[in-house]
Design a binder for these strands. Structure first.
Lengths: 236, 236
DNA sequence: TTAGTTATAGTCATCTTGACCAAAACTAAT
DNA sequence: ATTAGTTTTGGTCAAGATGACTATAACTAA
């Protein structure tokens, strides 16, 4: 990488270095209650600054890839995951984010389906954490995660982003559990059903989820498109 | 600046260069109807690429300023304006935004009050345009402006951003004119009043706007805070 | 067969929204 | 001085959305 080979004088005149990071969300059953909760993978810092602390997956931007591609690659390289949803979160460029040099981080946030998340790589230096129990992270990454959580809650309440945390087929109870996990409050099943069913992007299938202990719930499918970012503006 | 002194080999290994641009909105009376409409200042490209075309104000990021400060400085330097509202829009980093070199632009959008906008510098190379009649701009700036307009309309409909396009005191009719200009449709005065007055951030003053042709409208004041960006999180 | 639990349907009061009506308060014209 | 015209401001009413709640259907486990 360029900046590592530059001497001190060059570093002071060189532009701030540019990095891509990603906040990755996936659902996993809580160890205690078994209900789905939000988890995210973090990587351990193996060098200074903040050596030993956990941090968001990230890396440099190469010349041949767009910002979104860089985020996508980073996701794949650190966790082996392919996201079902990927959106730019914010560009963080405060002066003192990194003690050694000026870094501007363009941060993305991603949603991963549970089937994918199940086969995610985990290792000594890559570990999953509950989003509400992270402890102290490197750099300003706690603030970044807070903002990503705020954005996720927002998109959930307005947009139609919950389905990207689920598989292709799902029950309405599963959708409700996503909402309850992210918004952290109970929702009335009947009212929730009515609201979800009023959106045209939900398609009833003829299938039912068998094997449960109670009345078998119908399976549904999501037919909507992701969003309206500048990067994702294929369909107007 | 660093990249201009680098040779070709260095250019290919150096990280993409980083720029800050700003979409600046202000209200000005339409020449035809006299009603307030959205305008924005653009600067003329004086060198290649896109020499002669109009472009968003922008420039490099210096080492001693945050992203927001860089946007603010850029605003001041090109137009002489101080914004009443400034928020990050998006980081644009497509591979072919600029034909000569790879550039990542972190774009802000700003709102300027009419008193400020009236004394804005205008010159051979800085000119104001109606936001809905821009023509072809340099780089991907047409797409950026489109996205900024979308964001403005969104924030207007949900957030409380309209007041930053007005002075300290305003009538409800003036607020309505802002909404009508930005959303491009007529709004019922009575219903609009009811909706605006239901937000607690609007304060009635004892004053009335005199000198009009009809019943003198009461003047109001906005008491809310800007927003909830990561950069603006002073008040939770 | 029965108890327990979830899925699904529906009711009802409350709140919000858009369409519309009308009085109040001013100016300009007669 | 009176009247016509316009904007401001306050209000009603029906339609739609929302939250609290009740009830039935459909399954499992005992």
């Amino acid at each position: 990488m360029y900046t590592s080979s530059a001497n001190v004088a060059e570093r002071q005149t060189a532009p701030p270095s540019l990095a891509i990071s990603t906040v990755i969300f996936a659902l996993r059953p809580s160890e205690t209650s078994g209900r789905p909760t939000l988890w995210m993978p973090l990587v351990r810092r193996i060098r200074e600054p903040f050596k030993g602390l956990w941090a968001l997956p990230g890396g440099p931007l190469t010349h041949t890839e767009s910002l979104q591609d860089a985020a996508s690659r980073n996701l794949r390289e650190t966790t082996g995951l392919a996201p079902s949803y990927l959106e730019q979160l914010y560009a963080f460029g405060g002066l003192h984010r990194s003690p050694s040099q000026r870094v501007v981080s363009i941060v993305y946030w991603a949603l991963v389906q549970p089937t994918e998340a199940a086969l995610a790589d985990e290792s000594e230096n890559v570990k999953w954490f509950r989003a509400d129990r992270l402890g102290e992270l490197a750099f300003d990454h706690n603030a970044i995660v807070d903002y990503a959580l705020w954005r996720l809650r927002n998109k959930l309440a307005y947009g139609s982003v919950a389905y990207h945390l689920l598989g292709e087929y799902f029950t309405l109870a599963q959708v409700r559990e996503v909402y309850e996990a992210v918004l952290d409050r109970q929702l009335d099943p009947a009212n929730f059903r009515r609201q979800i069913m009023s959106t045209p992007e939900i398609e009833e299938t003829g299938e039912y989820l068998q094997g449960g202990k109670h009345r078998p719930p119908r399976l549904y499918r999501f037919t909507g498109r992701p969003g309206l970012d500048p990067d994702n503006r294929s369909t107007p």
